[in-house]
């Protein structure tokens, strides 16, 4: 079972990575890249490291992919600034209501009850946290410093033109 899941997830990851580099339109490439990151997060879950998977989704899909899409839209401003199509409001409302009703129906009719989190995963989190604070506190500080410096550098570069 796990082998099949691993095979599917890794194949999807590699496929989307290739698609990210080879797709003709840059925005589709960015979307494929974020899907590939999602596949990598799935691989992390298969490797029993849930914390890294959460971090991967937060940092890569949450910030890096969005940042890339923003930059693409900045660079290709003439193409993406004036999109005129896509104004089918009634279709959207129907889709939203349909999705909501099916999800409500299935979640009410299922036998799921409240669950307690897996204690093994929690001890994992605890171990990572204590290792970060106790053993690698200097590297943690340095990483924070690097983040701050990169933000300041990016801002100065963005302001450079306006002087």
């Amino acid at each position: 079972m796990t082998d099949v899941v691993f095979l599917v997830v890794s194949l999807l990851t590699v496929f989307f990575a290739i698609l990210a580099l080879e797709s003709r339109e840059l925005v589709y490439g960015a979307v494929a890249l974020s899907l590939s990151f999602l596949g990598v997060a799935g691989l992390f879950i298969l490797l029993d490291s849930l914390y890294i998977a959460i971090f991967q989704v937060l940092v890569y899909i949450g910030s890096i992919a969005i940042l890339i899409v923003f930059v693409i839209m900045l660079v290709r401003r003439d193409k993406w600034a004036n999109v005129t199509s896509g104004n089918e409001r009634i279709l959207g409302i129907i889709a939203a209501v349909l999705l909501f009703s099916t999800m409500t129906y299935f979640s009410l009719s299922s036998s799921l009850t409240s669950q307690y989190p897996n204690p093994a995963a929690i001890s994992d989190f605890y171990e990572i946290g204590s290792q970060l604070i106790n053993d690698y506190w200097l590297i943690l500080q340095l990483t924070g410093l690097a983040l701050a410096v990169s933000i300041v550098g990016a801002l100065t570069m963005a302001k450079f033109e306006n002087r």
Partner: peptide, 12 residues
């Protein structure tokens, strides 16, 4: 974790 954080700075 450190590697991901540094990758984020690099991307920015």
């Amino acid at each position: 974790l450190f590697a991901i954080a540094l990758a984020a700075t690099e991307a920015a």
